[in-house]
Design a protein around this nucleic acid. Sequence first.
DNA 1: CTGAAAGCGCTTACAG
DNA 2: CTGAAAGCGCTTACAG
Lengths: 329, 329
Amino acid sequence: MITIKEIAERASVSRTTVSRVLNNNGYVSDDVKKRVLKVIEETGYIPSENAKSLRTKKTKVIGVILPKISTETSSRLVKGLDEVFAKKGYQILLTNTNLVPEKEIEYLRLLKSRHVDGIILSATIINQALIEEINGLKSPFVTVGQQVSEISNVLFDDYQASKDLVNLMIKKGYKHIAFIGVDEEDRSVGYLRKAGYLDAIKENNLPIEDCWVQKGIFDVDSGYYSMSEIMKNSKQKPDAVLAVTDRLAIGAMQYIKEAGLSIPDDIAVAGMGASELSRFVSPSLTTIDFSIEEVGREAADLLLEQINGRNSYEKNRKVKYRLIERSSI
Amino acid sequence: MITIKEIAERASVSRTTVSRVLNNNGYVSDDVKKRVLKVIEETGYIPSENAKSLRTKKTKVIGVILPKISTETSSRLVKGLDEVFAKKGYQILLTNTNLVPEKEIEYLRLLKSRHVDGIILSATIINQALIEEINGLKSPFVTVGQQVSEISNVLFDDYQASKDLVNLMIKKGYKHIAFIGVDEEDRSVGYLRKAGYLDAIKENNLPIEDCWVQKGIFDVDSGYYSMSEIMKNSKQKPDAVLAVTDRLAIGAMQYIKEAGLSIPDDIAVAGMGASELSRFVSPSLTTIDFSIEEVGREAADLLLEQINGRNSYEKNRKVKYRLIERSSI
DNA sequence: CTGAAAGCGCTTACAG
DNA sequence: CTGAAAGCGCTTACAG
């Protein structure tokens, strides 16, 4: 490893001077500057960010904690983050909890130990211990997708999106609308989307059967199974079904098609998330695009504002979603 | 920031001793150890990895350079990498070239300046400047998906996979097989997959028309357009088409369906990549699963071997692919 | 079993 | 315009 010391010696100047030309600050005569630059060029010297950040207390890296690394949501989020961070010279240190809650705390500490300049947490289920850990961190921090009190976050409007979809169905004349959700511990996908559905139904005085409201998990098979439960157990068969993710919706579609029914004539289907799948399934799926890249960009902006000490008062941002109407309704 | 110095003072020991209990090496009496541990607990002290790595020359971070951040390939690759690196206590520093070749060199330098313990490069197009930069790096290094001479790499067997698909078509009785590829500058997807197709055709003495061999780019629309070119310009219409990515294949399928033809009765279609889409389009798409997670794991293993100074002789690994036969052939 | 001191590669007042 | 020296938070011979 070649260091600043060696550059200084070769150029017959002090390390101070080399540092100055490296960072382009302070006075350096053109002559000396050229000499130093030449040596740097010749040697291929690259300054150590590590040593630098030990002094300056800035690392130019942002820690990102993801619940799952290889989902469309995660990769779209990271894309949005990277777009703005890269532009400002920040790198992303990636961390993946694989949905194990204790890992969130573990990684929070790890990121702190690495002195990242800020942290983005894409959380699913928030508990008290986590909130305390975050508050103890005293580091620029933004969460995405879940509201944590007193902490900046960028949110999807889960409630309204879900409501919009149900209202669209109602407008199109559907009256018996079933629902496939997930556990309500997940406040965004589980609780809020269900609340939107329930409220829309209620506001329109539509009927509902217990078995119309199913709770699945995040995959296609679960959608298939939930739909089968709905069809087997309901007295009045529903003429529409809203699923809280596209995968669940696609599973439901599979069941419906296998049952010899037509979509949307016999049963309309809607999903949420605007996965790429939703475009190419047949019939193409009506869904919600939560503009996740945009969420990523907003989160990055918010974090940068905190890092630069500005505007830390803005706590919540909701990103506008887009309802994508296709052939399944 | 609370530091080792403060812990030492509070526990009335030297920093040396604190360091010893932190790293669990060297002799420390139980008594002193307990005292130190207690202070650490009380203060919530987290040692600075930065300072540590400045001394030890190890950062426990791996740099990853991706051509595109939000594709299925990238996220499956990162998943595989993360599986093995996380287990060994390594974090991933993510870097995204957005397919801009100069960025590869820029990020290589950046990762070096951060003293990552090793680098994984998922390359698309390799040029001489890049190779020189890599060789100058003198750092553990593995490339994925593209062969770079004298550098460890994990490869897909693009040539054979493509050949297998064509042979499958031939076995099923198809005789007029068209091809949608991409630019041959991309050695893996462009050149090798085309070579596999061409050789399979040749070995079976099958006919081929110039316009049967199209060059597209990496998206669905391009597949649609390429297919239209094939159908419009060919004298003998093909009865099968191989596309080098699932997206291209799906675009081709769209065109075929819109033309009122049936898949696979009129024209069989195969893609490559086993995207999630391929399962859910209709008819479901026959494709190649390159086991990208496995590629990631292998690459991580190879890199770790280099980091630990073992087995740096093994240069090339090919990961077994799986041909997934579905309804489109 | 414990500690004083040097050193990792930088930056930054301070002095000239 | 330039440099000597201190310091960032750790670890690691070395000595006792």
